[in-house]
């Protein structure tokens, strides 16, 4: 009886793994999905203008802060840039707001 219960537990565990993998696969952004186009259509013009403003502000903060010490680096993927910007926040004492704007600019 107990063996049967444990076997059921094993099945449940396998089901959990399958569910995790399936959910991961389902939530992974697909390149073929025209998500940017859909998002762009859904975005209002005021939202786009705000995005532009933030991008310009990010670029301005990047040039004012980072270029004081070194040449402009290339843009890196978001998860790398998150680490690099956190390092630069501690090293060169950029403010919290500047860190967020620069991170946004460098990952777009």
């Amino acid at each position: 009886m107990k063996v049967r219960t444990l076997n059921s537990l094993v099945l449940v565990a396998f089901a959990m793994i399958g569910l995790a993998v399936a959910s991961a696969w389902a939530t992974t952004p697909k390149k073929s999905t025209p998500a940017p186009a859909v998002a762009a259509a859904a975005t209002s013009s005021s939202g786009a203008a705000q995005d532009d403003t933030m991008r310009l502000e990010g670029e301005k903060r990047f040039r004012a802060n980072c270029a004081r010490c070194h040449a402009a680096p290339p843009k890196f993927p978001p998860r790398m840039m998150g680490t690099i910007v956190r390092h630069m926040r501690v090293r060169s004492l950029i403010t919290d707001e500047e860190m967020r704007l620069i991170l946004r600019y460098m990952t777009e």
Binding site: V3, F14, T28
Partner: peptide, 30 residues
Amino acid sequence: ARTKATGVLLLGLLLSSAVMYCQSEAPIPV
């Protein structure tokens, strides 16, 4: 059977954590 069940559960947790980590936006070591 108990050892097997525990092992599979741990493997499941590890795998789902790894999948979640790979998908998250969290900064990575550089």
